[in-house]
Simulated scan of single mutants.
Amino acid sequence: MMTQEVVEKYADVFEIDANLCRLVQRIELLNFVNPQNIEAEKRRFFAHKYSENPKFHYPKRKFDAYKLHRLFYSQRLERIEDDEIRKLYQDVIYFYSGMIQCIENIGKGTNFYFNSLRSYGTPKERNVENAKFILHFEDEEEGSDMIPAFTAEEAKEYFQAFAEQYDFDLNVKLSTKLAAEAMVSNSTQTLLLKKNVLFSENQLKTLANHEIGVHLVTTYNGLDQPLKIFSNGLPKNVETQEGLAVFAEYMSGALTLKRLKELAYRVIAVDSLLKGYDFKDTFDLLHNQYKLNRDSAFTITLRVHRGGGFTKDYLYLTGLKKVYDYFHAGKDLGVLLTGKTTLSYAETIKKLQKLGLSKTSTYFTSAFVENNNQNKTLDFILQNLK
């Protein structure tokens, strides 16, 4: 329980934290970067035999970017006496300023791509080699649990039942405007499901552990923290959050080699951006050279080309490796579940907890406790990634 003494001692931190919270809530990038006409453009792309790039339309920006930049940089960080905490909030301002520039340039080709590079980076050579290493493994034999058989409405019921183990509300909405089968909206605490798809039993288990077991767990843990920065997200938190989410798939026994290969294909696709590939070139690489079926190739290509070149997707695999190594080094995953955290700030989080500015996780990912992974091939791969 946070004491009045802590509130008074760190009054400047709480004031700046609250100010930034009001600003950050307006710029959740995924609310703007998902095209509104995915299905129509997919049909057109297929009808033209993959020869014409899709023309995607995006939601309109609902804020004045210049004014928002100015408000971020008007925060008087010099009032924060602790150097480490002041540096953290400085990093926050730089990071979210970059997010504003990303949103400003959605749909503007290389302008968006270069801002995406600044916010998320791009795969290094070893990351591409890791992806190719995974793709060399022979596909596993698929069981009946891999057959798409459940509608979005049935998936909704499955997720609601899964979430009962956690004491938080689960809001589920169906959407036709998602690049992925499911995603969590942090700002509205909502699980969004793609409406017109069928889900396999394995996919339901995977998404439940990924989206609810990590993304919603960290959403609600973040909301429970004294400082709102944990809810809005520490700088560059995507790699850690997605790493935790895929690690939850692994620990639950839901992660398959096919799913791991999907993450590897994303690395290959993001790397193609650096090589100057356009949408149809990346699709050709995945569909004709790597022999992915056209629906999977289109989805992965869409994910990395949306906005004008979105490099975020390579971080799932790098994040998984970092979290895997962190866990096997005997370190506490609970620190990383306290909100939308970043592994590189783990020691800062521990310091905030000692100062009374943070609390331990209210909710803890069930897969991390149960540890049901029995796939020796995946163990071998993860141990040997660079």
Rank of each mutant, 00 (worst) to 15 (best):
M1E: 11
T3F: 06
E5L: 08
V6S: 01
I16E: 02
I16F: 05
C21S: 15
I27C: 03
L29Q: 12
P35T: 04
A40K: 03
A40D: 06
A47M: 09
S51N: 03
S51P: 07
E52G: 08
N53A: 06
K55P: 02
K55I: 08
H57N: 00
K67Q: 11
E81T: 09
L88R: 05
V92G: 00
F95Y: 14
F95V: 10
N105S: 11
N115L: 06
R126L: 15
E129D: 13
L135N: 07
M146I: 04
P148N: 12
A161L: 13
Q165A: 15
F168W: 12
N171T: 15
K173S: 11
A179G: 12
N186S: 12
N196D: 15
F199M: 09
F199C: 06
S200H: 03
L204K: 01
V214F: 02
T218W: 12
I229D: 14
S231D: 14
G243Q: 00
M251Y: 05
A254N: 08
T256W: 09
R259Q: 11
Y265H: 07
I268W: 05
A269H: 00
L274N: 11
Y277M: 07
D278M: 13
D284P: 04
Q289H: 15
Y290L: 09
Y290T: 05
K291L: 12
A297P: 09
T299D: 15
V304C: 14
H305E: 06
R306D: 00
G307D: 10
G308R: 02
K312D: 02
L320R: 06
K322H: 09
V323H: 12
Y324T: 01
L336D: 00
T348K: 09
T348W: 03
I349M: 02
I349A: 04
L355A: 05
L357G: 01
S358G: 15
T362I: 12
F364S: 13
T365L: 09
T365A: 14
S366A: 15
N373E: 12
N373L: 08
N373G: 08
L385N: 04
